[in-house]
Amino acid sequence: MTSTCLITGASSGIGRELALHYAANGWTVYAVARSADKLDELSKNAGIHALPLDLTDNTALQSTALNMLEQGVVLDLLLLNAGTCEYVDAYDLNLAAFERTFAINFHAVVAATKYFMPLLKASLAPQLAIVSSMVHFFPFTRSQAYGASKAAVSYFTDSLRVDLAGSGISVHLIEPGFVDTPLTQKNDFSMPFLVSVGDAAERIYSGLLRGKSRIRFPRRLSVMLKLLSMLPYNLRNSVATRMKQQ
């Protein structure tokens, strides 16, 4: 029997690569993104179905989920990957940037969980996987909006796992480091231990296949950030400030 997944943020980057990876491994993939043109191109690959959708539109999100439920679609994996990043100026905080970032990085994750989770219930081994980031381990310059949104996502996912224990739905938190995607290619700073999008997709795929509750990569960056986070608070702040100045 063919397994089925729904992947958000599938028009580019990690989401697109994951859609291709799952389809190549025999899954039926519902690829979700706002860009209909990019999804149409992606859906030329066998096993991938385009699902153009604005995840910040709760009405459209609910309607799409209900239609799929009425059609008898059963998801074995709901993989919420869509995200964005905007850097801000601490001396003139852009409130609209915060609203946009939280809208897609956090509020859309909560809404997608609410409306698509019923599609998991009929699966024999349902998985809910949510992509966050390691950015919230350490205070990086200009990352107030992005880092805060990802901290919220990680907490939401861990808390959700507690309350869904015993439901049959396994909850998985994915916290990548720097991945070479169109989003990170806009960065104007050094990105240590950068991994390719293909490598990232393989790590996520294999981690979920093994049922890992938390998938972090690359390991070297994870260890480095964890060590930095363990520094005495004032020393950690000094290190973060020096890193900003480099």
Rank of each mutant, 00 (worst) to 15 (best):
S11E: 03
V239S: 00
I7T: 01
A103R: 00
T8N: 01
L61P: 04
Q71H: 11
Y155T: 15
L80F: 01
V32H: 10
I7M: 06
D76L: 03
S123Y: 08
A125W: 13
I215E: 02
P118C: 00
Y115N: 10
L231N: 05
L235F: 07
S133Y: 02
L75P: 07
V223I: 14
T113N: 01
L228V: 05
K186P: 05
S132M: 03
G13Y: 06
K114Y: 10
L95R: 14
F116T: 00
S167A: 03
P232C: 01
V135A: 10
S213R: 15
G15P: 04
L93R: 14
V88T: 13
V73D: 07
L51F: 11
S206C: 13
S213N: 13
A50F: 05
T28D: 08
P232E: 01
A24M: 04
F178M: 06
R210W: 07
G211V: 11
Y205C: 03
L93Y: 12
Y146A: 05
D158N: 15
M224W: 15
R142Q: 14
A65I: 05
V162H: 13
A103H: 00
L79F: 05
A108V: 07
V239T: 00
Y205S: 02
F193V: 09
S222R: 11
V153D: 03
G47T: 01
L120S: 08
N81K: 00
H136S: 12
A65Q: 07
S229N: 11
L69E: 13
F98D: 02
R219S: 13
D92H: 14
R242E: 12
L77F: 07
L6C: 09
T101D: 00
I204V: 02
A96Q: 14
A31K: 06
K226S: 11
L6R: 10
I130R: 08
A19G: 04
K186F: 06
L128P: 02
H172P: 12
T84I: 10
F140S: 08
M230L: 15
A46M: 10
E99R: 07
K244W: 12
P182Q: 04
D92M: 15
Y30W: 11
I104A: 00
G15A: 04
L124K: 15
Y146S: 05
T101R: 00
D89K: 06
F106M: 06
E86P: 11
L80H: 01
S12Q: 09
